[in-house]
Structures are given as structure tokens and as C-alpha cells.
Simulated scan of single mutants.
Amino acid sequence: MKKLFFAALLFSAVSSTNAQTKKTTVYSGNPIFKGWYADPEGIVFGNKYWVYPTFSAPYEKQVFFDAFSSPDLITWTKHPKILDTANVKWAKKAIWAPSIIKKKDQYFLFFGANDIQNDQESGGIGVAVANNPAGPFKDHIGKPLVDKFHNGAQPIDQFVFKDKDGKYYLIYGGWKHCNIARLNDQFTGFLPMADGSTFKEITPEDYVEGPFMFMRNNKYYFMWSEGGWTGPDYSVAYAIADSPMGPFKRVGKILQQDSKIAKGAGHHSVIGDEKSNDWYIVYHRRPLDQTDGNFRETCIDKMYFDKDGLIKPVVMTNEGVPRKLLRK
């Protein structure tokens, strides 16, 4: 009887502790900030998390970018209109999928504009620069960085990647084709590859758009979106290789809609820390009660790996992630 009594006391104490812990855990909630935003790129600068999304609206109204910052993934500060087409003379509409990187003391923001359909139209992928991650950003070269279709890739959905050897690459492409190109030191153009080419196609099976790359344990994880961005089949898949050039063989999907949570989950980014093994996927999705293609919201959930380094399927939540302060 004494053993049973003490076991009951111990269970009660543990339950009470767990209950107290649960009460004090604060979660981000999903979406993480108000408004219709899509194609979010999450990144860390200093002791803050930053998210740079597309303003989700009809193309003619997509003429600026807002950014959001947080010290803990819970409280987000909006930085309105960090880039406006008023500062980019060739961009008129449909500025999409910002991707940002810091080089020395400057911040370079890559973006797509005008949704060009052929080589005769004006637009493509541009780059803007600022001295602060909150901008204001101004056009860096006065013209698009990529203004033509190479290897069938529409010049949209750009991602800038810094390799472990210090080289910078632009990875981009819509219309089911993806290219990689090495940026020059000034981010004003490109350097030829070893074989003399400038734009190398690295398209994996079922690729549609929205490329993203990160490294973990010296492996290159290449991720992309599949399906149609307005439909329920929008999703994220990935591959792993030993080089940013691939070859990339599709492993499988890790993010897709959940009929109990949201539809059209895709066009994502990853914030990760190998030391702490904390990994987050930042993505957009459409609420179950919305049918308008532009009604997309930015969300964040944890991302996990198995013992073999494969990404486990992401569980979408309404709670989001717990508070996580950054340390310098």
C-alpha cells in the first residue's frame, strides 16, 4: 500500500510539473502574422529572425515587399514597403518570392518581377541592395539580372545560396525547370561554370517552382514546390546530393495539405541550426474556408530528420512553434 501511495504521489507531482510547464510554454500560432502573404523566406540576421514574403494579391497590386522580424518567433514587427517598384524603374507588377543574403555590410534582395511569358517581354529577376535588413532597398544594377528564358526556366522564384567554399549561386526557375548560376563578386552578373556554361539546369523529377537549398552534415538538401499554386495539390518535395549541382534524385514529399488544418501548403524556406538541431520550415498555406487563390498566409512549423538524415513529413499545426530566443 505504501508503494502504491508513493507512486500516486510521484505521478501527481510529475503531472503537476508537466501542467505547469505546458502553461508557461508560449507558441507562435499560425499564421505567424496578419495579412495575406506567400512565398516566405526565413533567415537569421544577428539576434533576430526575419521573414520576407510575397504580398499575396492580384499581380497589378504586387508592387512592394513588406518584411517581418522577431527576437523569439512569437512577437513579429512589420517593416512596411522595404522595396517598392517606385525604386525599380523596370518592375511594374508581380514582384515575387524575395530572397535575401548578407555580404559584408550590405544586404542583397533578389526578386522576380512582371511575370514575363517570353524573351520579348521586359522583366525577370532583379536584385536590390540596402545597408539594413529592413531597407529601404534600391535597385542594384538598374535592369534585370536574368531577363530571358534559359533551359526553359521562367525567370522567377529565385534563391541565393552561399556554398561552404564562399561561392554564391542563384538558383531559380518556374515552368517546371530549375537553373543554377554562379554569381560574380558584385552580384551584377554571372561567372561561367567549369564547362563554360552560365546557366546549368538541375531540374529534379516533378519540380514545378520555388527552389530552396540548405546544408546539413555536409550534404546539400535541395527542395522545391510541386503541383499548382492555387490548387490543393501544392506541396514541397526534396532531394539530397553531394554538390549544389546535383544530380538531384527526388526523395519524396515532406509538406502537403491537411484536410483538418489547411490547403495548398508550399513555397517554403528553412531556418536551421546544426549545433542546436533546431529546424523550422516557413511556408504558406490557404485556410480551409478560403477559395481565392491569393488568400495565403505565412506559417511556421518544426522540421525533423530521421537517423539517416532524411526529412520526416512535416506536421502542420495551428499552434506553430515554441518561443526560441536567439543568442549572439
Rank of each mutant, 00 (worst) to 15 (best):
T85Y: 03
I101C: 11
S225D: 13
S12T: 11
R327D: 12
N218E: 12
D258Q: 12
E209K: 00
G227L: 00
C299N: 11
L4P: 00
G246Q: 04
N132H: 12
F214I: 08
G309Q: 13
F33P: 10
D292T: 06
K307V: 14
N179V: 12
A237H: 10
K143P: 01
E226Q: 07
D163C: 08
D119P: 14
L288D: 07
V44A: 14
K249R: 06
P53T: 05
I180W: 07
A194I: 09
P58I: 02
V160E: 06
A130C: 07
A262C: 04
R216I: 07
A194T: 10
L9T: 00
Y107P: 15
D278Q: 06
G123Y: 03
M303I: 10
I300Q: 02
I254D: 11
K2L: 11
I311F: 02
M215I: 07
Y238M: 11
F64Y: 15
L73Y: 09
V282N: 01
P192H: 05
A194S: 15
N131F: 12
C178F: 10
E209T: 01
T188G: 09
A57W: 02
V51H: 08
R296Y: 01
Y107L: 15
V315T: 10
S56E: 02
Y59W: 14
L170G: 05
K260V: 08
S276E: 06
K275A: 15
Q154M: 14
F110N: 10
N30P: 12
G309I: 11
G174P: 05
N218H: 07
P40N: 02
V270E: 03
K249D: 12
T21W: 11
L83A: 02
A113M: 13
R216E: 11
I100R: 03
N179R: 04
F212G: 07
P58D: 09
A237W: 00
E319C: 06
G173M: 09
H140D: 02
Y52R: 08
N114P: 07
I141Y: 11
Q117I: 06
A237S: 15
P80L: 13
M213H: 05
K93G: 04
K200E: 10
L83P: 03
